[in-house]
Structure formats: C-alpha cells, structure tokens
Amino acid sequence: MSMAWRRLGGSPWLFAGPAVAAALLFVWLPMAATLGLSFFDWSLLRQEATWRGLDHYRGTLANPDFHLALVNTGVYLLALLPLQVGVPLVLAFALMRVQAKATGRVYRTALFAPSVLSFPVAAVVWLWLFNPTVGFLNTLTGMAGVPPQRWLSDPDLAIWSVIVVAFWKSFGLNLLIFLAALANVPRDLVEAARIDGAGGWRRALDIELPLISPALFFAVVTTFIVVLDEIVGAVDVLTEGGPYRTSSNLLYFLYERGFRHFQFGEAAAVAVLIAAIVAGVTWAQFHFGERRVHYD
C-alpha cells in the first residue's frame, strides 16, 4: 500500500512537510538563535560577533531601567490578574443565569466586541477619550466637579490608564473561555445538587467553579500573555512607555534595547528572560491545571 501511495505522490511527508519546515524555520530555529545571540555582542551595523558569556544577563539584571520595567510588569500583572479573571468569571456565571437565551447572546456579542479590535485601534480610541483638554473622560470628571486629569502624562496615572485599556480590550476572551467551560459542566450534576437542596450560590461555588478550574488557570495564562506580549501595542500608542518609563514593561524594554539602540545581544537576553517567565507560567498551568482536573 505504501508503494501505491508513493506512486500517487501521496507520501505523508508531502502533507506534513511544509508545516514541519515552517515550524523549524520560523519558530524553533529563531528560538535557538535568540538563545545563542544572548551570549554575544552583535548588531546589524557591526556584523561581527564577540563572545560575552553571561554579561548581557548580568548587565540586564543590573540595569535600573530593566528593574523599572520588571516592577511595572509586576504592577500590570497584579492589577490585571484579578480584573481579567474575576470580572469575566462573574459575568460568565451571570450570563449563564440569563433565561432569555437570545438576549444572553446579544450581551455576549456586545461584551466580546472590544476583544476583536487590535491593541493599537483600542489604544487610539482611548487616546481620544483620555485627551486632557477635549477628551470625553475630562468632560465627565468636569461634570462630577473633579479637576481635569492628565491621564497619560501624569507619572502616577499613566500605567493605570494603560491597564484600563488593556482590560477593556481583552476581558472578552476570558469571558468566552469561561462560558465554554460552564456550558460543559454536566447538567445532571447541577440538577442533582439542586434536588439535594443546594442553592444557587452553593451550586456555583461547590460544583461549577471547581469543574471549570482548568479554564481559570488558562485565563491566568492568557493574562500573562497580554501583559508580557500584546500590551506593547497599547503602550507604544498611548504612552511610548512614559512618562519617565513609568508605563514601560519588559517587552517594551526589549523593543527599546533592540530596535532603538540596536543592542541585539542584550535584547536577546531580555527575550530569553521573558520567554522563561511565560514558559514557567504555562508549565504551571499544565501541571497544576491538569492535576485539578484528574482530581474529580
């Protein structure tokens, strides 16, 4: 049979080959190259590599700007994790309890709508709302008797403004994930609990919540990805990491080192550090998430 296939040009590798080649060429090879690059001094302009060992890692870890980016990334995470998990979770539970299903779908459509926009579009829309002189938000604060705010250029406010935009633009994805998970909770389990006299809250907390815990873990991962990766589109448009780097994050720091100062070796070291964080979180999600599932 395999000979007949080969005659027809049907080797399975003709099917799978392009995808395997693409994965190697555009993901695995660049990944290895980044790791290698992080041990060298190398730039596009001066195409000559000098071995630096762990210097870039040492230098990066000692760089005050990196510290600031790291702290800011921590602030983004501390603010966005509870928001991005908690708010969509409450909305998902509430949406499952809407009895008019067609209306419920309209709500879902509206709530997910910002999530289909790109970060730069979301950022430009909010740039206009945030405008200190004629923006809508200061019109609102004016009506409330609060003095106008410089949402994006006040060092105490800028990072929170970016957080609001990131939350607005990305909570919908976690909402969908929770809704899908809740829809898969076996109805007979919930019904059985109801017959046993468990109230709505008990059913939600003791049955549905533990059963969707893998989705909760995944929502944590998507939030990490938003903060470490996608948010850069909002940071770049809204504040360019400023004022005084107060809204920068790790990826923006990488962007500045690599593509403003063209320190590729240093930027590679930052990329490895970011990837290590993401890999650690993903690993934890699989490890703890899977264990929770098998528990049931």
Binding site: A16, V20, V27, W28, M31, G258, V272, V278, A279
Partner: peptide, 28 residues
C-alpha cells in the same frame, strides 16, 4: 494518515503554540 515519525512531527508543529513569539523576533 499513519506513518513513522508522525507523533514527533506533530509535537514539533503543535509545540510552537507554547513558544512566545517574542523569542523568535530578533533572529527573524
């Protein structure tokens, strides 16, 4: 289809989902 090396090839391709694209940026 079933063929030798299928599972390894599948892991190689689908494993890219776990790689943050940040780490591919500079060499690419």
């Amino acid at each position: 289809l079933s063929f030798r090396g299928r599972d390894a090839a599948f892991a190689l391709v689908v494993g890219t989902m776990t790689v943050p694209y940040v780490i591919t940026l500079l060499p690419t």
